[in-house]
Simulated scan of single mutants.
Amino acid sequence: MNVVESLTPRQGLRVLVTAGASGIGLAIAKAFVQAGARVHVCDIDSEALAALPDGITHTRCDVSREDEVARLFDDARALGGLDVVVNNAGIAGPTAGIDEIDHASWTQTIDINLNGQYRVAHRAAPLLRESQGLLVNLASVAGRLGFAYRTPYAASKWAVVGLTKSLACELGPDGVRVNAILPGIVRGPRIEKVIEDRAAKRGISYAEMETENLSKISMRRMVEPTDIAAMALFLAAPGGTNISGQALSVCANVESL
């Protein structure tokens, strides 16, 4: 196999993507389908699931609920096993000072962003051992940088990086690779809401907040959902065979938040 061939995942990979009906998750699901994979996704948005392209099967699932995650894996059995699991489900959480964040908002953010990844990894590990497969956990550049007024989100994403590195050590002897992708400011409705909330908290305009955010990126631009999908594909390709335990930023070099 030459170097160029090593950049393409093999045909027929069996892939599960959480929160795969929109945004980054949908971009990843579509990319794997285009690469010849069989893809199953979950999401909490029933309308988005109904609008999925042909060739992507799905389950409605809230990863904060153990019973729903169990049903997700029951449904995914139709793939006959799993080669790649993409732990993508997460929420932005509140934008507020630590003394303003209520217990319920903090707990919900941790339960979805961190405990949800545990629930999926818990059930995925035996299947990935069988296939000597790949687990990809979606973290964030907020998992390597401080993020004022977004403490539950940042705390959960730092924890995802720790989870990733620990699972890479634990599962590596069984041939399973585990990596985290750390997206930067990804273009789309979700970041627009984050910018709007931070602008309101700071008492500045949306345009001023967006300009300030971009000024902290050395390349002065947002990244696209397809950039994150491209990294996931590379990790699943033969060229990614010896990459494990890594926290890989796809962010145009975010220097601070």
Rank of each mutant, 00 (worst) to 15 (best):
C169A: 11
K30C: 09
E212H: 14
V33C: 05
L214D: 10
V39Y: 00
L167N: 01
N253W: 14
W106C: 14
E47G: 08
S205D: 07
P225Y: 03
S215Q: 14
P94C: 15
D99C: 12
V120C: 09
T226A: 07
T59Y: 05
I191L: 15
D102I: 13
D174E: 13
V186Y: 06
I98E: 12
V176R: 02
R220D: 15
L167E: 01
A27K: 06
L138A: 03
I195Y: 09
V161W: 03
N115V: 11
S205E: 07
C251N: 11
V15Y: 00
V136T: 05
R65I: 10
P53A: 08
D62P: 04
G162D: 09
G162L: 06
R10H: 10
E212R: 09
G143S: 12
E196N: 08
T164N: 06
E255P: 09
I217Y: 07
D43P: 01
A104K: 05
S131C: 08
L214C: 13
P238H: 13
V250T: 03
T59Q: 04
N242W: 12
R220S: 15
G97H: 15
R221W: 10
D75Q: 07
L214Y: 03
S244P: 06
A27Q: 00
G175H: 13
Q108C: 10
R187T: 06
L26T: 00
L167H: 01
E130N: 09
L248N: 03
G172H: 08
V4L: 14
G36A: 07
T241M: 13
R198T: 15
K157S: 08
D45G: 02
V223R: 01
A35T: 13
R14A: 11
L257G: 11
R123C: 02
G20V: 03
S46V: 14
A252Y: 03
T95E: 12
D111N: 11
R10P: 03
R65Q: 14
R14M: 06
R60K: 13
A159V: 09
A76T: 09
A92G: 15
I185F: 12
A37P: 05
V63R: 01
A237T: 06
G23Y: 07
G184K: 01
R77N: 14
N137E: 04
A48K: 02
M231Q: 05
P126F: 01
L52G: 04
W106M: 12
Y153K: 05
A51N: 13
L145V: 08
K193W: 14
A76M: 15
L171Y: 02
A207E: 14
R150H: 06
R150W: 04
G172R: 10
A70F: 11
A21V: 02
S244R: 02
G146S: 15
L214I: 13
I91K: 08
M209G: 04
E100K: 14
A229R: 00
V41T: 00
N253D: 15
S105Q: 11
L134G: 00
V136E: 00
L79E: 08
N88L: 02
G81Q: 10
G80K: 12
V141A: 06
E208V: 14
S6E: 11
I217P: 01
G175E: 09
L248T: 02
L257V: 06
R65M: 10
L167Y: 00
I217S: 08
A252L: 14
G143C: 04
R187H: 03
A19N: 02
L257Q: 11
R60D: 07
N213K: 06
L233R: 01
D74Y: 13
I110A: 07
R38D: 05
